[in-house]
Design a protein around this nucleic acid. Structure first.
Length: 485
RNA sequence: GCAGGGAUAGUCUAGCUGGUUAGGACUACAGCCUUCCAAGCUGUUGACCCGGGUUCAAAUCCCGGUCCCUGCACCA
């Protein structure tokens, strides 16, 4: 369906495909951009001081060294020559010595394995030579290629690198939020599960810089204190469900109120803006072992998807402390501390991170309804095409009248026209791409009695004059009016 | 990356004990018909994953690769 109707498919399939890379078709890109628009509107709307920026996708080694990615994104892998099992070199050594083994080179790992006479834990076979695997794609810059660089593994670093510039340009205020919607790259070992794990993917991330001593005071927590939040604790994350627990009780359990306030905003985005069913959404806690090295508090945003077999991560809410700015301060020898009022500090960071492709996939998964007919029940706001115009039959001047109406509607709303096949077939086609409303010109239209508007999910219709049509559709799309308007 | 399975039009599939004009259904397109939900009739377009080998002859047998699926490992 995704392929047939022009949403998304594997890239370069003309040449057999390229694992981990996907292309968007004409409907997929519309859906994705509508999602991005809604995301920007929702999250930049949280504060007057949250803004969108755009930064380079290639970063020099020094910047990624400071961020920790050069060291922590690298694994040394050792493969058994007999049974073919692969292990992480540092874990093998740690299991044997019970000591931390970090930052070793491949030669050092090989030497230690020899020295400790480590064999394959699975079959006792001889282990092959170790090799380095970094999840970042290296890039050689310039004719000599001496300036080592990488495709960025996350958009967040672009924000951190521009923090000081924007802090000045935005006149030294905290909290300050900087968002990027852009591409990131990770050389995944085995990309699978459709568009879930990709090597080139889109992130939408908002980094909020704040003073931990005062952030909570700036937020109207009381207004959301009693909102029930759907949470799965680390211990029960493998289960299928979630708890409803009030925002206030989450704070009582030890989470900062500013953190919980943002969890509530994320939940609102999914439940109210994207209209994901309540039971298909949850915020899943990650324990210390699962968290990235820089995250102090970490909840995954998860959406239940049939095609992926349950709850899957589509984003995360990460408290990164002052790790990132401190890292760049050390790496660049440039102070990242700022003075706001009487306080001088290196701001802390709360990151709201979303995988755009994963979100688009989740929407397709959740919207897909197959019964007597195939319908994509997308929210009206983000459907690729909001309205279609049809002639009921292809005679008596009806197609001409319908085309004229289409041209008029298009001046205000993206619209699709189709006169091939029967009227039922045309309805079926737009149901599949999730178009919420369609307009049909019939014989009564010729008599000045207006046109019919059909709703995708109910298949119900009502009649409206041609003059009021565009206004009516706009009210339906914005949610100001409900069907029948 | 390892092990197992798979790959025929946009989709599902027949053919796979070598020799077929590679067949069908749905979709798409054109036309006819049609006063509201994939109806019907006629016609048309469109495929053997890539490379090599065996053979007089390969969609079919063999080898290598790519991609997909499942499990393991990995997963900011």
């Amino acid at each position: 369906m995704s392929v047939r109707r022009g949403f998304i498919w594997p890239a370069v399939d003309l040449y057999g495909g390229l694992a981990g890379f996907y292309d968007y078709g004409h409907n997929g890109i519309l859906l994705r951009r509508h999602w991005e628009d809604l995301w920007i509107e929702s999250f930049l709307g949280l504060s007057d001081n949250y803004h969108l920026i755009d930064t380079t996708t290639i970063l020099p080694e020094a910047a990624l060294k400071a961020s920790g990615h050069v060291d922590h994104f690298t694994d040394i892998l050792v493969t058994c020559t007999r049974c073919g099992e692969s292990y992480r070199g540092d874990q093998l050594l740690e299991a044997s010595t019970h000591e931390e083994q970090e930052g070793l080179t491949t030669q050092e790992v090989d030497a230690r394995i020899q020295e400790l006479k480590i064999r394959c834990p699975n079959c006792k076979g001889v282990l092959g030579p170790s090799r380095e695997f970094n999840m970042m794609f290296p890039v050689a810059i310039g004719p000599t290629g001496k300036d080592r660089a990488y495709l960025r593994p996350e958009t967040a670093q672009g924000v951190f690198l521009n923090f000081k510039r924007e802090f000045e340009a935005l006149r030294r205020k905290l909290p300050m939020g900087l968002a990027i919607v852009g591409r990131a790259y990770r050389n995944e070992i085995s990309p699978r599960q459709g568009a879930y794990r990709m090597r080139e993917f889109l992130q939408a991330e908002l980094q909020i810089f704040f003073d931990p001593a005062t952030f909570a005071d700036a937020l109207p927590f009381d207004a959301i204190a009693s909102v029930p939040v759907r949470v799965a604790w680390a211990a029960e994350k493998n289960g299928p469900g979630a708890h409803e627990i009030s925002a206030k009780d989450l704070v009582n359990r030890g989470l900062p109120s500013w953190y919980v306030w943002h969890l509530v905003q994320v939940q609102r985005f999914y439940l109210d803006a994207l209209r994901i069913p309540r039971d298909a959404f949850r915020l899943a806690e990650l324990d210390e072992k699962e968290r990235a090295f820089y995250n102090q508090i970490h909840f995954d945003i998860q959406v239940r998807q049939e095609s992926l077999g349950g709850f899957k991560e589509v984003g995360g809410v990460h408290y990164r402390t002052d790790h990132d700015l401190k890292g760049h301060e050390a790496g660049s020898h440039t102070k990242q501390s700022v003075t706001v009022g009487a306080t001088k500090l290196v701001p802390h960071v709360l990151e709201l991170s979303f995988g755009v492709d994963r979100n688009v996939w989740a929407l397709l998964d959740l919207s897909y309804a197959k019964g007597d007919r195939v319908v994509l029940r997308l929210p009206a706001r983000i459907a690729p095409v909001p309205v279609a115009v049809f002639p009921l039959v292809n005679k008596d001047g009806i197609p001409e009248r319908a085309e004229a109406l289409w041209a008029a509607v298009r001046k205000r709303i993206a619209a699709f026209y189709d006169d091939s096949g029967s009227i039922g077939r045309r309805y079926a086609r737009i149901d599949e791409i999730g178009t919420p409303f369609s307009v049909t010109v019939d014989h009564e239209t010729l008599e000045g009695k207006g046109v019919t508007v059909r709703e995708r999910d109910s298949q119900k219709q009502f009649r409206v004059s041609e003059g009021e049509l565009a206004d009516t559709i706009e009210r339906l799309l914005s949610g100001e009016a409900t069907f029948p308007a």
